[in-house]
Design a protein around this nucleic acid. Structure first.
Lengths: 239, 239
DNA sequence: CTGCATCCGCCTCGATACTG
DNA sequence: CAGTATCGAGGCGGATGCAG
């Protein structure tokens, strides 16, 4: 066992990267942001990681106090990993990175892994706190088998797991479409027209939800403002 | 040239990490957050990176639209790299990571690189927007050869390069002490007593500045709340 | 002298096989 | 199910070469 590689800089950022900067680490933490998970759960959601790496990363994160092991049932079986408070503090940063990275997602390729559970974090990342309406209502999302909702109340918005009671809007879609909409590569309108998105409920609620998530709810000014991506997308996809 | 390694996940976070997740990349961007820099400047501030790696990273970041080359003087010489708007969007995330990583900085070791310029970002990261007093005043910092200041006005605080006009407070220290204070391993009081920190100016301003930066300005409740770090620090340093 | 490109030893990574 | 052991491949780190 050689001494762990470090940037050897006396600096907060370098120290942070010494803890969570290695390959796969932030993706492991993303999985744990969705709730406690067992070793094999994490492994299944991170295709390509290699079992030794996952074990090593988890051990290291536990040692640094970012992750801990918990006994979900009383029984000694069913061990799981969960984030410590220090790990939870990474949530806004990971959500911010997720939002930033949305500009870089391309078209879905067959070799890309895709998990509906990631949609929850994507939605959480897209929430714009400055755009919360003063209404108290809930928007429900059904991304493949995953169900979650956003609740607004008192000028604040929260994303929660599970179905919503009395949702003002329900959106049904698949994971690929959900990410494409979030990245601006697809508008809700276009997704509906192609049958990949089904919206139910009050029209006003749909518009407010789009506003809350920073989406082009309709109409003309659409795509242009988003087209800052690195590789010019040949020409408009609608072309 | 083999095809670039990717997480191959259709997800904003994975896409972000495909761009800025590789080793050294975020530290390169940190350097550019402090202003445009030439190749050799970046190289000098990142000991250990290896020249080929820096060139490759920069080229890749330019290709992805995160960094661009600029001609500082009109002359073709003096090329420099600077962040694009997309790169600038990483600032709050990097500042957040810097703050998060403060919990993990240990005692300064002789082999650790240390640059006074990093102090500027550290200060920016420590700024607590909820703790801005309503006064309009400036706090100046002299960290070794680097001079910068924080200006509060209209309930907002900004960090700026250079000396302050009519500063309400001036703090002189060295880079190691500055980071140690920021990480909570050292209080301003203790740093003053050991002669590593010199504070000048209005006492009230000093207290307000400490409040703004989340520092223990004095007194008793000190260190305890910070002691959530991974490895217990044997016992209190004051022992 | 700056700004890289090339080369090489080594360490990390990724995949498979194997064990409690 | 939850990892450990092993090994080939490739990314990394350091030294050197070279063009503008």
């Amino acid at each position: 066992m050689t001494t762990k590689r470090s940037y050897q800089q006396y600096c907060g950022l370098a120290s942070a990267l010494d803890v969570v900067g290695e390959r796969w680490t932030l993706l492991i933490i993303r999985e744990l942001l969705l709730g406690p998970a067992r070793y094999s759960d994490v492994l299944a959601n991170l295709p390509g990681i290699g079992t030794n790496l996952l074990a090593e990363r988890l051990k290291f994160l536990v040692q640094r106090g970012v992750v801990r092991q918990v006994d979900l049932r009383g029984t000694g079986a069913q061990l799981a990993y969960e984030l410590t408070p220090a790990g939870e503090e990474l949530r806004p940063l990971i959500l911010g990175l997720t939002r930033w990275g949305m500009e870089f997602v391309g078209d879905p390729r067959p070799e890309d892994a895709l998990r509906p559970r990631w949609g929850f974090l994507a939605a959480e990342a897209m929430l714009d706190p400055t755009k919360v309406s003063d209404r108290h209502e809930r928007y429900e999302f059904r991304v493949d088998d995953q169900v979650f909702h956003i609740e607004t109340s008192g000028g604040r918005a929260r994303a929660r797991r599970g179905a919503a009671v009395d949702p003002a809007m329900v959106a049904k879609t698949d994971a690929a479409t959900f990410v494409q909409i979030g990245s601006g590569r697809l508008t809700p309108l276009l997704a509906m027209l192609t049958g990949h998105l089904v919206l139910e409920g009050d029209v006003g609620a749909v518009l407010r939800c789009c506003e809350l998530l920073g989406l082009e709810s309709a109409s003309s000014r659409a795509v242009a403002s988003r087209a800052v991506s690195a590789r010019p997308a040949s020409s408009a996809a609608a072309g």
